[in-house]
Design a protein around this nucleic acid. Structure first.
Lengths: 210, 210, 210, 210
DNA sequence: AATGAATGAGCATTCATTCAT
DNA sequence: TATGAATGAATGCTCATTCAT
């Protein structure tokens, strides 16, 4: 009921806690949030039920924790990758590549985000994380427009498109299609920067049909 | 549990059944699959619990039913729209527009698909529907490549990219952003066909970084 | 979570509900509120756990229900008894006698009230019931003072004293001491109306000691 | 579980123990016995759980301890007050005053007694304490009867009536009504010794109604 | 076709108590 | 003496499904 003081943990306690977080994340990812019971988690680790509640206030809190950690980790990966680039297009590109690599290496967390997105209780958290990623990319998009490298349009829309396409194609190519992350990233970068039509076609845009 | 013969229904029975399907769909969409109980559904309609099990074998069967219907409906909308076009690019474009319109008009079903995608039990169904939509689009993409209107690449990848971008941007622009469907469709079509970089940049692709 | 519509019950349902209320009341009275589990109640009646929640929203709601019913019943008994009396002293007397009789006949409810009084959640309910009983007696006390039959003092204090003494002595004499209700009532009436000192002593009150 | 030898405590240990008893008493009084967990107590004092079980065998033992201590303390207060009086009526009066004062100054213990009275496990303890208080008062009541100061009646009944009235009115006037203890004691003494009817009425007792 | 009633396994959570350090 | 960690039975409550009428 009352917000609890975060426990002071011994080294042993910290290890336990991490064990719980990791195992729970994988279980949530494979069975879904509702279908995963606390019993599943503690039995999977061979510990008593009380252990769970020694480390977490509730199932919900743990899930939230996992989400926040995942987002922080993804963002860290993106930032680390883009750290040294100057060229705005290049920055975006390495961002995409870092994302695909992370999604490949943390498939279960990727799945978790999808799950969370569909739960009213967790959706805001996911959206918030997404907005932060978009916000990270936004300056590069704007910079790209200023130097006429990126077509002038609503930069927010463009940034979102990049993220959405990366997400969707990473799932399709890497997770479902089994393509190596590096190659999938090539495809995604291509799609983003070259578009899907030939230059000749791109310039002869027709009036809105219907 | 023996597989049950689908009931032959009177006209009144059919109306009842539709009522159940529609109300359930909306409830599933707003509360989620697990959080929606059979009681929620029957109480919401002011009928007894027996009614539900008269028309459906289980909660799962109902949900499956809803999903299949939704996909059939979406596909019908897409097909109807593209019916008269010849130009492959144009066919794709009207397909996108039809999709966005449908997602706008059937927001709850859109939400439902997202939910289903994250449940192991229903994911194959959604994926199957998606594959069918991709398959519908594929010939147009291939045709576009043959007449050099679409850049030569794996047509499956291209088709998937179009669908993924449409989905993602429709959610962001229409559902979350409140943009009118028609304008959102303009944006999406633009993104698909013009890409996000200026023509000058598009041609000077750099080597893969890192 | 949401306040539930009271169920429409069939005759069979009503009987079940009463069975539950009665059995629960007796169990609560003998084991206490916390020590009585829902399992105790349903197992005692040989029914499934769901039955309980078909009729009641929660353990707390049931307990509250029982308390309110008990108070209503007690008050009804008191009112019925005093109905025809005119003399204010006499009205009070028959009220006392009716209370003792009720407490004797509903020992388990008596115990329940004591239990409820000590639970923060239920105490207001009990206090409220008590206040109502006091309010019922108050006019008689005031009338008695006006005709110089009752010593002039704060009538609220006097009314409370009568109730408190009745309660306490009924428990001591009837429940713990096994005295017949009628005789216990005699004692209580005596104590109330004759006080405990001889008339000679009563008039020579000394100054406050210390 | 073997009965444990009471620990021999260092001075520091004794202080710790008292701290626990006092804090626990206040917590039990405000939240109730069942609702108070060992965790509440040790966390409230900022110590580990082991501490509790170092000083007490169980939650129940601690509660029992508190009850016994409370009774001893109350009785000591009563005895101290009546110590010098000779007049039996006066002895009773100072006893009442001492009780009210103690209840006022130890509100949480008062509440505790009420709680304990409703728990089968602890009720005998409370009853025992009460009987002891009654036994303390009994000789004064008998003496009062012998010198014709107190109406001849069952002295046990009279003694119980005094205690019951004191308890009930102290709660109503002091705890719930906020009246100063001294004034409340005046009221209670009045009620006890003067009764509630006028002398004229007291003598014309009517036959038992009904 | 439909209703109210019933079932019982399953779930998240609590907590007195014990244990290793 | 004291701590953090662990145990596991018990609890209130939910819910898909079945049944009698």
């Amino acid at each position: 009921m009352v917000a609890r003081v975060p426990r002071r943990l011994t080294r042993r306690g910290q290890r336990r806690r991490e064990e719980l977080v990791d195992f729970a994340a994988r279980t949530f990812a494979s069975k879904g949030y509702d279908a995963t019971s606390i019993a599943d988690i503690v039995e999977g680790l061979g510990v008593g039920k009380g252990v769970f509640y020694w480390y977490f206030e509730s199932k919900e809190e743990l899930f939230r924790q996992i989400l926040v950690d995942a987002h922080r980790d993804l963002r860290r990966a993106q930032r680390f990758a883009t750290g040294e680039e100057i060229d705005p297009i290049r920055r975006i590109e390495v961002g995409i590549r870092a994302s695909v690599r992370w999604l490949d290496e943390n498939r279960h967390l990727f799945a978790l985000l999808e799950i969370a997105r569909t739960k009213e209780r967790f959706a805001p958290l996911v959206r918030e994380g997404e907005e932060r990623s978009v916000a990270d990319a936004l300056p590069h998009v704007i910079a790209g427009m200023e130097v006429e490298m990126i077509r002038r349009a609503d930069p927010l829309v463009v940034a979102h498109a990049i993220l959405g396409l990366t997400d969707h194609m990473a799932r399709f190519l890497v997770l479902e299609g089994g393509k190596p992350a590096e190659e999938a990233a090539d495809d995604i970068v291509s799609l983003c920067f070259e578009g899907i039509v030939t230059p000749a076609t791109a310039s002869r845009r027709l009036p809105r049909p219907r």
